[in-house]
């Protein structure tokens, strides 16, 4: 269904952004038509999902395989005390639906794998990375390249975080930067405002990508340090030897064919 207008109720809800000339009703309709994949309903995904739902992104597909744990609550603001033990994507669905019933939330309570990522990313305008390990980030990266969908990487640890946007075919990819293997998910310290900062920037990037406005955080890795409140941008360029997007790469060899059956 092609969405060509917004309702009077939505016009009231989105008034403060509709009066921005860069958005206006045309932009609001673009947001409403868009679907975003948020990979992970943790610290980063909590923040980006809230802001994208609030901004009126039409569909948010949010994937996570975990259930809410009390130890998540210092930073994962989608979830509350009453959600402990509940599937994270169900908790996300309830919160986002309450925040904005005009946003269609598609919860996927699954672990992200080579086998399901292409289906998950189908029809998505942007992939937002809210995962907690490099292994799954690489799966997102390869899907981004195969399907030509921008990927907004975010990562946090301790008092610092990083964020950048990868556009397939135009910029470096995640594996240009992080080519090594690190499948281990380690339990590191983290303070809530850090994913707050990085998740906010990721949602800003997603909104700009959908609207086609502004200057994207591409070819620059933004490094945030909360201890000194510093933001630095590191210039990055495509790695010609990248195993995934370089000139000799064979991207298809990295992905197992999508297989919906489970054993």
């Amino acid at each position: 269904m092609v969405i060509q207008s917004i309702s009077p109720e939505e016009a009231v809800r989105y008034n403060r952004q509709l009066i921005l000339p860069e958005i206006a009703p045309e932009g609001q309709i673009k947001l409403k038509q868009a679907r975003v994949l948020i990979a992970g309903a943790g610290g980063l995904g909590s923040v980006s999902a809230y802001y994208l739902a609030a901004a009126g992104v039409g569909s948010i597909r949010i994937a996570d395989s975990d259930c809410v744990d009390a130890g998540n609550l210092n930073r994962q603001i989608l979830h509350g005390t009453g959600d402990i033990g509940k599937a994270k994507t169900l908790s996300a669905l309830e919160k986002l639906r309450n925040l904005n019933p005009y946003c269609n939330v598609e919860p996927i309570q699954e672990f992200i794998t080579d086998g399901n990522i292409l289906d998950m990313a189908e029809d998505c305008a942007v992939i937002l990375d809210g995962t907690d390990n490099l292994k799954v980030r690489k799966i997102l990266n390869r899907a981004s390249i195969l399907k030509g969908i921008p990927l907004v990487y975010g990562g946090v640890e301790g008092f610092s975080g990083m964020v950048t946007t990868f556009i397939p075919g135009r910029t470096s990819c995640l594996e240009c930067l992080f080519s090594w293997d690190n499948g281990q998910k380690e339990e590191n310290g983290i303070i809530g405002p850090v994913p707050g900062m990085i998740g906010s920037i990721q949602s800003m990037e997603a909104i700009k990508l959908i609207l086609g406005i502004g200057k994207l955080l591409t070819n620059k890795l933004l490094v945030f340090n909360g201890m000194g409140i510093s933001f630095r941008k590191i210039e990055i360029e495509k790695n010609p030897d990248c195993p995934v997007c370089g000139s000799n790469a064979d991207i298809c060899s990295f992905m197992k064919p999508a297989n919906k059956t489970t054993k």
Binding site: G42, G45, D129, D132, R137, G155, V156, G161, F178
Partner: peptide, 10 residues
């Protein structure tokens, strides 16, 4: 020169 340990938590 900056030596940086990238952040992979989420």
């Amino acid at each position: 020169i900056e030596f940086i340990n990238p952040n992979f938590g989420g």
